Amino acid sequence: MMLELKKLPYEYDALEPVISKETMTFHHDKHHQAYVDTANKLLEGTGYEEKSCPKCLLKDIENITDDADKKQKLINNLGGVLNHNLFWDTMTPGGSSEPVGDLKAAIEEKFGSFDAFKKEFEEAGKGQFGSGWAWLVVSEGGLEVISTKNQDNPILCGKTPLLGNDVWEHAYYLDYQNARPKYLEEWWKVVNWDVVEERYQKNCKCK
């Protein structure tokens, strides 16, 4: 079984007006599909071509190939697959307000307040030069906000992603043009905190 394009968990227009149907269609059907197709092609002949878990493949990247150029291309495209799989599930029509439970407590303990966390997250997205992502991750047992370039996923540096926002221009330019800060502010309206809480509970207790 090869890598497959993840089906959106909602309709293409479900996140409007925060993200338009046009943006979702191009982002999912063109960009995400391209990462899937390219990754599958790069995996041909490696012995890993039947693997369908991009996270597992990224974690095993050192064993897939010794070719530095091919390895970087795999990181770019497997990261593109995994990052978008996480991204689609992180959003829901109407959002889910704000975190609750253990995650809320951990955010308030680390950042002081939910609003302070949001500000730091937005700054990470605004400060990412060029294409990349802003993330809330678990790192060494605690929460941290980071940014990564291109399609790098936090697992490449030993961190567990809980929440990620895509700040590649294709994620927002049709709707916000060059106003990345506005996109970052509006995006909170569609964040699915229930899913982020589930990831936190399943993978990473910050105690």
Rank of each mutant, 00 (worst) to 15 (best):
V195A: 01
Y176W: 14
T90V: 11
Y12K: 09
Y173C: 08
Y35E: 10
Y48S: 08
R180G: 01
Y48V: 12
A68D: 11
A34M: 12
D152C: 04
C204M: 02
L15N: 00
M24R: 02
P54K: 07
I64M: 02
G94I: 11
K6H: 07
S113H: 12
E185S: 15
T38Y: 00
W133M: 02
D29G: 02
L42C: 11
E62V: 14
W168C: 05
I75F: 05
G45R: 12
Y200R: 04
L3V: 06
T148V: 08
Y183G: 02
K21E: 15
K55C: 10
I146A: 00
V167I: 13
G132F: 00
G130S: 08
P181W: 07
W88V: 06
V191S: 10
G80K: 00
C157S: 12
D89C: 11
E62L: 10
T25N: 07
L136P: 00
K189V: 13
E4H: 13
Q151P: 00
V190I: 15
S139G: 05
G127I: 02
S96M: 10
E50S: 12
L174S: 13
Y48Q: 08
N63G: 14
V190S: 05
P154G: 05
V100H: 09
K71Y: 06
S131K: 05
G45W: 13
P17N: 11
V18T: 15
N83K: 01
E11G: 07
K73Q: 13
N178L: 08
Y173M: 08
E62P: 04
V145L: 10
L163S: 01
A14D: 04
N63H: 15
E186F: 04
N165I: 10
I61Y: 00
P17I: 12
S20W: 05
I64F: 02
E49P: 07
G142C: 11
K7Q: 13
H170F: 12
D152K: 02
S52C: 11
W88E: 04
D37L: 13
L5S: 09
Q33C: 02
E169L: 06
N178V: 10
P54L: 09
D89K: 15
I75W: 09
L184C: 08
E198Y: 01
Q151S: 09
K6Y: 04
L136N: 03
I64Q: 03
K149Q: 06
E108D: 15
E108L: 11
A68N: 04
F111N: 11
L162K: 01
R199H: 07
W135S: 06
K207H: 11
I61H: 00
W88H: 07
E109C: 12
E186N: 15
T65E: 03
K149M: 04
I64Y: 02
Y183K: 09
I19A: 11
L5Y: 05
P54V: 09
Y172V: 05
S147T: 11
G142I: 13
A171P: 05
F121V: 12
H27R: 07
E140I: 09
L174Y: 15
N40P: 06
L43H: 09
A68H: 04
E62R: 10
K118G: 06
K202A: 03
F26P: 03
C53W: 07
S139L: 04
A179V: 08
W188T: 13
T160M: 06
